[in-house]
């Protein structure tokens, strides 16, 4: 399964068992840092909103495309909220990974990631975001990743081009 997850609505239909998650249509509260998903109900978030349907999709995808506006070189709030809520995919326990301490993953597939970052993005912001995605790769099981920085009006055609690569 492959996953397209976006913070804006896209006019796109996916084939096969590929999934499209439009975060702008979902109700997702922010992570409250309670550690419930590690120490009370391991693997499940204690906040039972739409995020609980999304993080299993993230975990079980082989290829992902994330589409997000940027803010300060970070995913903007909509996408960042979902990514913070995805920590039930990790365990509390820590391991050595690529020479650094990181959490163990649960049943999370290694994946190829494409990040389509949009907005009016300065060079400095691009630089910070590249570092962020490189760090995320350790915690989100990215084996390979590619980042596009595009204007908002170019998001859809960039997405379509990337989705076509899944299907060819």
């Amino acid at each position: 399964m492959n996953l397209l997850m976006s913070d804006i609505s896209l006019n796109i239909t996916l084939k096969d068992d590929n999934k499209y998650v439009d975060l702008s249509k979902l109700k997702i509260a922010n992570c409250v840092g309670c550690f419930g998903c590690w120490t009370k109900t391991p693997g499940k978030c204690v906040i039972r909103d739409d995020a609980t349907k999304v993080y299993p999709l993230i975990a079980h995808s082989q290829k992902i495309i994330y589409v997000s506006r940027l803010y300060l070189g970070s995913y903007d709030i909509t996408m960042k909220t979902m990514l913070e809520r995805a920590i039930p995919t990790q365990k509390a326990f820590i391991r050595l990974h690529n020479g650094e301490t990181h959490h163990y993953q649960r049943n999370v597939l290694e994946k190829d990631a494409v990040i389509i970052a949009y907005g009016d993005i300065s060079e400095k912001e691009q630089k910070i975001f590249k570092k962020l995605v490189e760090r995320n790769a350790n915690n989100m099981c990215f084996k390979d990743w590619k980042i596009y920085f595009v204007k908002e009006q170019d998001v859809e055609k960039t997405v379509i081009a990337e989705v076509n690569k899944w299907e060819n």
Partner: peptide
């Protein structure tokens, strides 16, 4: 840190094995 988290789980009556589950939302 492993010991720290095991103790944290114990306070909630959750064992190390339960915390170690590979399942995400029962999948």
């Amino acid at each position: 840190s492993t010991n720290y988290w095991i103790k944290y789980g114990q306070k909630n009556n959750i064992t190390k094995e339960q915390m170690d589950t590979m399942k995400i939302e029962d999948i």
